[in-house]
Amino acid sequence: MVSDKYYLSDMSDRLPPLTALRAFEAAARHLSFQAAAGELNVTPAALSFQIKSLEEHLGAPLFRRLNRRVELTEAGLALSPQASEGFQTLTAGWRAAKRVLDSGILTITAGPAFTAKWLAPRLFDFAGNHPEIELRFAATLRMLDFATDDIDIAIRFGPSDQDDPPDLHRALTIEEWVTPMMHPDLAQKYQTIESLLEATIIFDDSMKFLKNSVSWADWFDAHGLATPDLHGTHFSQADHAIDAAQSGAGVVLGRISLGEAALRQGNLVAPFDTALIPRANFRVLCPKGAETRPGTRAFLDWLGREAGRMEGQRDGRRMVLAGG
């Protein structure tokens, strides 16, 4: 028997007003009518009225009103997660629609080192050819969400055999490799592979998260040389290791993606012909279908051309698969 305070609708599948559901979702999340009202910028009385109308629509209470707090009833507990998910989906859809219309803004996420050493030095070219596109960068290693974080393109480094999410399109793969890099003055001192055993070593630990990482021991092993316990300065960020090598502090097993600009400008040299290929690469991802949008397509094409420019650094080198 239903309390006379509520009634069962004869149209049980008819959705209630969106404003009432929004009021419930906020109140269920905060377990406070006052906090929910503040979030939605309405008075507590107005929010309470919306929730009451929702309860009448359902024919059952959604909250237990206690002395200074509220708690969800069984019906409220059933509705709360679905309501939250529904509003998250609506928000994501709304943001996606706005991004389609706002073709003049392109938001890219990449790691801090790749942004600083690879993207930033090249952006003048893209900006000069596409003044109509405003680029925004989120330089972070945190995995951002395309929908909730308003991301158009993600550049991520990870294992080569890593699968992409089914809703994403891999627009480009940028290969990585490493080789000893040093200031030109040091190249006069360390002219043989054996002489590097006496060099001041800079350790780039940025790829240690990989199951099959690369190390100085791997590089010397590719030449049939056993290595003693090498000592030197360790950097967790690859760009910091590259900066230290440019200053002449030592020799780094440098990543081509981050050292290529310095090599091209003559601030670093890579005099030895052996390079190691890690079992990892950069994946350039975007939501499926987004790759055809004019702004996204322009940036992806430019990215592909710039990545192709690095291929010249491979000329004359012996490429060895790390761990192979």
Results as ranks from 00 to 15, higher is better:
M1Y: 08
V2H: 04
Y6D: 00
D13V: 04
A27F: 11
R29W: 11
N41I: 04
N41K: 15
P44Y: 02
S48Y: 02
F49W: 06
I51G: 00
H57L: 00
V70E: 06
L72Q: 08
A78R: 13
F87L: 12
G93L: 11
A97K: 10
S103D: 14
L106G: 04
F114R: 00
A116M: 09
A116R: 15
K117C: 14
A138C: 06
D145W: 07
A147T: 04
T148R: 12
I153T: 04
I153H: 06
R156M: 08
D161L: 09
Q162N: 07
D164T: 15
P165K: 12
P165D: 15
P184W: 13
L186A: 08
K189N: 11
E198G: 13
T200Q: 13
K211L: 08
V214T: 11
D218F: 01
A222F: 02
G224L: 06
G224Q: 05
D229C: 00
T233W: 01
S236H: 03
Q237C: 09
D243A: 14
G248Q: 10
A249V: 00
G250E: 08
V251T: 06
L253N: 10
L258Y: 01
A261T: 12
A262C: 03
L263S: 03
T274R: 05
T274K: 05
A298P: 13
D301Q: 10
L303F: 13
G304W: 05
A307V: 05
M310E: 02
V320W: 02
V320M: 03
